[in-house]
Design a protein around this nucleic acid. Structure first.
Lengths: 221, 221
DNA sequence: CTTTTTTTGTCATTTAATAGTCACATAAAA
DNA sequence: TTTTATGTGACTATTAAATGACAAAAAAAG
């Protein structure tokens, strides 16, 4: 994990370098915005940017960085006036710390942003009163949790990812079974049936999966 | 930690409720600004406020909230026009996310503001009759101390830090072994089994770890 | 440095949950 | 009414998880 510090105050820059190296990060130092942009390359995972820079302003630097890639940028600034902060977010800064900052807070924020950039983000689908958590495979219907086996989960996921579309049987087969060839056409029917039963148990008053005769299935409007 | 959601769109409101509950927060839901103001009391630690509400506008709601107390307010809004946002900050909103928002970002911001409001999270985790001290690595179950080897401790810690969530096998692998690749898939099963045995010895009448078939594990509700 | 103890990982077997198949019932189109 | 497709309960096969036993590795003790 490599962090680029762009900060014109030498002592703060060095202090940050020491702090970050001590916590296992690779560190590159720049003492002006333009220098920072020169150093910036694929090896950098996160930028720590001071706002008050000689030459190009912090705002310009952020814009340049974000033009090139979607690196997380944490802004450090003595300005805690709200309007300033706002503009930074609008430009694409991912977070800010106000000077003088707490080292642990800074480290925590760095960690969060590196993790975010590295990990797929959490995704939650919803349809009517069904909530489907793609990260943890949890399914909630009518605020009750249902436990769905893998194939039933994948079926429901496929339907919910294509809310307004009819999914053909071979569509569904290729999504859930990695093949459009069906061993037994009935397999799908059975799974849909089981899924419907479980949903009905949670909410008897609602219909979810609609049969499109001789084509496939879709979620009811 | 209790969060009040004020959002008129039912499905977004419910999705947020799910997300936040899953991350250990208490949640109260309001579907209009006036309802939100009625629910608002001392138990609430943070307000998540949609801007576009029927009846009273978001701006009015913020003013009302801030008149009563200094609760952190995070505004959610589809409007990313700058001037709008500026006014919100002027009114006292503490942060904002634009819709559609990234769940992890929202969680991170909530955490930051709760921390700022000095509602620090403790270094001692508890679940049912298990107490886990992250500082001293002591584990107590049913008032008896258990000594857990490193991997078992980390497993239990991971589960307890994500009380309501299903942790996938690869989640757990990356937490305990620093890799999501498992040499032998059974390794995890064995450790879970050992952990369960030790917990059962302390309290034979309680079940703690639940298996989510073909996905992973989580703590029983 | 060697021995002992503890922890960790692997294997084989048992146990449990899920997936798939069949037979027949039901419903829709022709 | 006939044909064709879908729905569903019961059964079997398949796959995943739990666990006792053991070996390897690491840590602690001597």
């Amino acid at each position: 994990m490599s962090i680029l510090i762009i900060e014109d105050d030498t002592s703060i820059n060095n202090m940050l370098e020491y702090l970050l190296k001590n916590h296992g990060y690779e560190v590159k130092q720049a003492f002006s915005g333009t220098e920072g942009l020169l150093i910036l390359d694929d090896s950098i995972d996160l930028v720590l940017l001071d706002l008050m820079l000689p030459g190009k302003t912090g705002e310009e630097i952020i814009r340049e960085i974000k033009k090139r890639s979607n690196l997380p940028v944490i802004v450090m600034s003595a300005i805690d006036a709200m309007d300033k902060k706002l503009n930074l977010f609008a430009l694409g800064a991912d977070d800010y710390v106000t000077k003088p900052f707490n080292n642990d807070e800074l480290l925590a924020r760095i960690k969060v942003h590196l993790k975010k950039a590295n990990k797929e983000e959490s995704k939650i689908l919803s349809y009517k009163d069904i909530i489907l958590d793609l990260n943890t495979y949890q399914v909630t219907c009518n605020k009750q949790e249902i436990s769905l086996p893998k194939h039933e989960f994948l079926l429901l996921k496929a339907l919910m990812e294509n809310k307004n579309q009819v999914l053909t049987k071979s569509n569904l087969f290729s999504i859930v079974w990695d093949t459009s060839e069906s061993a037994d056409d009935n397999t799908l029917n059975v799974h849909i049936s089981k899924l419907r039963n479980k949903l009905k148990e949670c909410n008897p008053n609602e219909e979810y999966i609609e049969t499109i005769w001789s084509i496939g299935y879709r979620l009811k409007k």
